[in-house]
Write a protein that binds this DNA or RNA. Structure first.
Lengths: 129, 129
DNA sequence: CTTGACCTTCCACCCTAGTGGAAGGTCCAC
DNA sequence: GTGGACCTTCCACTAGGGTGGAAGGTCAAG
């Protein structure tokens, strides 16, 4: 299979496929006589795993770790569980940080909505902030 | 005032002050005979506004918009209200997206925790994703 | 024979908010 | 005259996940 077919079947761009190869998420494929990448259809399993992992919120380096484990012949299940667990914790942290920021912004917004523009001290540029 | 004094008084690095100048958040200051930046103390109001805006969760480009309005002699209050409002909406969107992602990850994690590794289909790399 | 759809490589760029460091100039005190 | 604390400019780099484009090769159809 040529790169275009593979990319199309996997629902990604050819650029992305080459990029994945470059960062060692995909093995370098065989080459046809003309120099074109010549993929074994099995690559679709791997590419499919990458896109599923991405959709599941994993970063490419997390995906790479799991694939690396898989390459050693190990069943990566335990590592996947751990990765997902870590991912949940990270997400909770991010959500908490954004929620805190939202509270700060909401407070400023509340003051700005309630305030009288004439209270503005030009020296401060804006008394709301 | 030299850049070090200004940076110190504002609680930012000298690097940050030069960076703000470079991206037009701060006007280019006068120069002393030796080529050193020579700031009027008034710059501290502007720098203070920038840091307050940052702490309030605004991006530097949002701060720049407000400063630009201020430069035209307008009271930027209305724009600030609008910016904060937009910022709230953006934050809500980000939080919603992260929460949705968290739900997806939680579901995968749940399945991975409940499942039996022996169910793994090696062709799929990992049945949990 | 040419057009167009593929493919190749490589380099640059997006974004944010700066930071790190090199190479060199300036000033003050000891 | 020298050490150290400043200052100057410029260039590169950070992370993530790619995308855009240039310059060129290959292949089949019309």
């Amino acid at each position: 299979m040529r790169i275009g077919e593979v990319a199309n079947a996997a629902g990604v761009s050819t650029k992305a496929v080459r990029f994945y190869e470059e960062i060692d998420l995909l093995p370098a494929p065989a080459r046809s006589a003309n120099g074109y990448r010549d993929y074994h259809p099995e690559i679709l399993h791997r590419l499919g795993f990458i896109t599923r992992g991405r959709r599941a919120g994993l970063s490419l380096s997390q995906v790479r770790e799991i694939l690396a484990l898989h390459e050693t012949g190990q069943t990566p299940c335990a590592h996947v569980r751990e990765t997902l667990h870590q991912q949940l914790a990270d997400l909770d942290e991010q959500i908490a940080a954004l929620s805190a920021l939202r509270a700060t912004v909401a407070q400023h917004h509340h003051i700005a909505t309630a305030g009288n523009p004439n209270d503005c001290d030009p020296e401060q540029i804006c008394s709301y902030l």
